[in-house]
């Protein structure tokens, strides 16, 4: 258990104890559940580190996001995808679709023309999914509203692939799994192996440069919402040998509200901004203006030197997928202009 988890647990413990002290009841069960959850998190991580995919003649077996061993029949005929980041990985690796979650990214994905939509993320119609008579449903194990549907899908004899997609290894795993299920292993070479090689080459080029200090944040005018290296874009920055000022001394962090004081003290070389996409240009222009006119933000070197950069939404707000190498290159050009913009 890392330091942060212990602190959080202690905070919860203090809260529970203070109330139970007053009411005269103990809440050991609640605490035990919290510990179990933390333990579970740990166990899940071990599984995620390996692909663990076994390809048989008619089936593919792998460990899913919940740690369960799952066997899927090859060449499904009616597939429904409920997590938008998986849609183009599936279609690019030999898959076809009969239904999918509404894609809000605004990108056109080849192979999805005329495919029925089954609702928005968070508001998916299970009836609609089942009415499409799928033999395979693919979803994210990290979305509780989707995971709730799994038992009912299984009751209807529908096979389910559920796993988490956060880092580039998850992308490679998805490509390997999907191409194996669709018996198009050749596409794994093209969509994963080649991309991995390209990414490695980009990373190599950054090794001898002075690592810049980076602050990665989620665009918001009301909050200093920082992202550590334990996020999709954070991983790219970390791989490129840059220093994410949000990370702790011994740990990579996720989404956090970060101290404005600390940000000014660290004075990063780059401030990189992510946004949720809609109306993006207008939002970004305004946020940038606000940062420049705000005395606290305006004092930062990154803002003064025009290194307050809004990240490309197709590559960084949504999962880059087959454009992963492009995302690395785009980021490398920002962080190491002297190496990549020769």
């Amino acid at each position: 258990m890392n330091k942060k988890n212990i602190k959080v647990l202690m905070l919860i413990l203090a809260m529970v104890m203070s109330v139970s002290f007053l009411s005269g009841c103990t809440s050991k069960a609640e605490l035990a559940t919290k510990e179990e959850v933390l333990e579970q998190d740990k166990e899940e991580k071990v599984v995620e580190d390996e692909y663990g995919i076994i390809v048989n003649e008619d089936t593919v077996t792998f460990i899913d996001g919940t740690g369960e061993e799952v066997t899927i029949n090859k060449n499904p005929e009616r597939t429904v995808i409920l997590f938008s980041s998986f849609i183009d990985i599936w279609t690019k690796n030999g898959g076809t679709l009969v239904g999918m979650v509404e894609d809000t990214s605004g990108r056109s994905i080849p192979g999805t023309e005329g495919v029925e939509t089954v609702g928005k993320t968070g508001a998916i119609s299970l009836e609609k999914v089942i009415s499409l008579k799928p033999d395979l449903v693919i979803l994210s194990s990290n979305t509780s509203s989707l995971m709730k549907m799994v038992p009912q899908l299984k009751q209807n004899d529908i096979q389910v692939i559920a796993f988490d997609y956060k880092f580039k290894d998850d992308y490679y795993k998805a490509v390997k799994l999907f191409s194996a299920i669709n018996e198009r292993e050749d596409l794994y070479e093209e969509n994963a192996v080649a991309i991995e090689k390209e990414i490695q080459e980009i990373i190599e080029k950054t090794k001898d440069s002075n690592p810049p200090k980076v602050f990665l944040m989620y665009a918001s005018a009301r909050d200093v919402r920082a992202r550590g290296s334990n996020t999709t874009v954070g991983e790219i920055i970390r791989d490129l040998n840059a220093i994410n000022i949000v990370d702790g001394p011994n740990e990579y962090l996720e989404d956090q509200t970060f101290s404005m004081e600390k940000l000014i003290k660290e004075d990063p070389d780059f401030i990189l901004v992510q946004n949720h996409g809609s109306d993006q240009e207008r939002v970004m222009k305004k946020i940038k203006e606000e940062a420049e006119s705000n005395p606290a933000w305006g004092s930062l070197s990154a803002v003064k030197n025009d290194r307050y950069i809004i990240l490309h939404k197709d590559l960084f707000t949504y999962k880059a997928n087959h454009r992963y190498a492009e995302a690395y290159e785009y980021m490398a050009k920002i962080l190491y202009p002297e190496v990549f913009n020769k």
């Binding site: 993320t121 989620y218 665009a219 918001s220 009301r222 909050d223 919402r225 949720h276 809609s278």
Partner: peptide, 11 residues
Amino acid sequence: FYPDRVSGVLN
């Protein structure tokens, strides 16, 4: 209806 924008309003 706009789950993708929720993270921006949590604060």
